[in-house]
């Protein structure tokens, strides 16, 4: 890989001065602030639906940023690798918060939660994404990385790819009528995944 451009080096220089824990702190503050708004902002009118969507939206955004780390490094020379674990874990915790708001505040009954997971494909898909992220969250620590070994750990963490696709599909499936935003997420996720694969040679026509 060629040396990064000057502007990218400059950005990398700034980034080196930012400790990774600030990402956790920022994420936690964001989550708490959204909950606080849900609790106190009466202009929201329907805070349960709002909070559920806000957490889901944050999770998708974080997944997109996490997936952007590798292409950003490869194609622009901007190095966010130090923050990737924090970004990925935050994505997981926002998915978890989204799931809890849905189950506890929205559906409010365990039987109905279970029925929704089994009966409603968009819930099934969202749940599958959560389950795929679970082993990733559990192994996002140095001890697990050592135990699994680098190659196996990286293979396991490719589950992020299907999880992000399922998350975007889950969002598309929610919309009544034609909604652009969920499609934008799917295109972003697919685009970031496509950047990971070597350019395929065109098959002769």
């Amino acid at each position: 890989m060629a040396a990064p451009a000057r502007w990218a080096q400059r950005i990398n220089g700034w980034l080196r001065r930012v400790p990774a824990w600030t990402v956790y702190l920022g994420g936690a503050a964001w989550m708490v602030w959204l909950f606080w708004r849900g609790l106190t902002d009466f202009t929201l009118i329907e805070p349960i639906d709002w909070l559920e969507r806000a957490y889901g939206d944050a999770a998708l955004k974080l997944l997109v940023v996490t997936l952007a780390v590798t292409p950003l490094r490869r194609f622009a020379g901007v190095n966010l690798l130090r923050f990737r674990r924090a970004l990925g874990l935050l994505a997981f915790f926002f998915v978890l918060a989204h799931l809890l708001v849905w189950a506890v505040l929205d559906v409010q009954a365990l039987g109905a939660v279970w029925a929704d997971i089994l009966k409603r494909p968009y819930v099934t898909v969202g749940m599958a994404a959560f389950l795929l992220l679970m082993p990733l969250a559990l192994t996002s620590n140095d001890a697990s990385l050592r135990r699994l070994g680098g190659a196996a750990w990286r293979r396991l963490h490719r589950l992020t790819y299907p999880a992000a696709v399922l998350g975007a599909v889950h969002y598309i499936w929610l919309a009544r009528g034609f909604a652009l935003e969920p499609l934008v997420y799917l295109f972003l996720v697919l685009g970031l995944l496509a950047l990971r694969f070597p350019v395929p040679r065109r098959a002769p026509a």
Binding site: G38, L39, F42, I45, E46, P47, I48, L51, L105, D106, A112, A115, D116, R120
Partner: peptide
Amino acid sequence: WSQATERRIGGGL
């Protein structure tokens, strides 16, 4: 979604 129950708007979080 189920239609068995509903949430009356205005009850907060």
